[in-house]
Write a protein that binds this DNA or RNA. Structure first.
Lengths: 117, 117
DNA sequence: ATGGGTAGTTACAAAAATGTGCCTTCTTGT
DNA sequence: ACAAGAAGGCACATTTTTGTAACTACCCAT
């Protein structure tokens, strides 16, 4: 068994319940929509309906669901403005910002992948 | 709408059917087991049953399924040896190797994430 | 008072991913 | 002859994720 505790990647116990950082990260961001949502937010904070318009095909239910998940997981934050009517702004937390370079490398790999098909 | 065709990340059309590199990449590698499988293979090629032993909780059916998917997607290759009894070696393709740094950044983010919980 | 924008919710349905348990075929070692 | 390792396959069940359609409530401008 390779040494998951002390190799160049850091720690990976492979024990269940998200004790493996890769499995955990995949769980936190690896869904159909979260990548795109985080990508949008990596450019700037956004209001709910703006995001909805930017993501073709997503429904309100799913968008709200994903946003809630990301919020609970500490990747984004949700802030209601004092405007009338009230608006809701979503933006990355520090943890979310840390994920941006990861997203960037995922994206460039995805592009390379596409160009080889 | 942000310019997905020409920003610092490259191309992201956001049109369906995996025309978005992030969505595509997530689809190719973002499942419960693929991250771990690729992580193992990033260290060295491996035989089927060896992988099975290394991944606690995975079943034969699921492992085979994931390996087939990764193979079809061009991330890994499958090679039967001439041994008796026949063994099957799995290893990363060039595309798979390209994914290793991505995996590495995902992993280090995952570790940071875990330490903040 | 009507339409349109804000940000959702609800009940239900379908699809996708993962899991369970057992069976197979080949081969080598005892 | 029999067990055990290698690499799966098959039928079925469950869980998780996504989707559909309609509905709410608030506010603003015409």
């Amino acid at each position: 068994m390779p040494d998951f505790k002390n190799d160049q990647y850091g720690t990976c116990t492979l024990t269940v319940e998200r004790a493996c950082p890769i499995e955990l990260a995949m769980h936190v961001v690896g869904s159909k929509w979260k990548g795109i949502i985080l990508y949008l937010l990596s450019h700037s904070p956004m209001y709910y309906n703006a995001m909805r318009r930017e993501i073709p095909g997503i429904t309100q239910r799913i968008l709200t669901l994903q946003l809630r998940n990301l919020e609970v997981d500490g990747i984004i934050e949700r802030k209601e403005t004092n405007d009338n009517p009230k608006k809701v702004l979503y933006y990355l937390t520090a943890l979310g910002e840390d994920f941006v370079p990861v997203l960037k490398s995922i994206k460039s790999w995805g592009n390379a992948y596409m160009s080889k098909q």
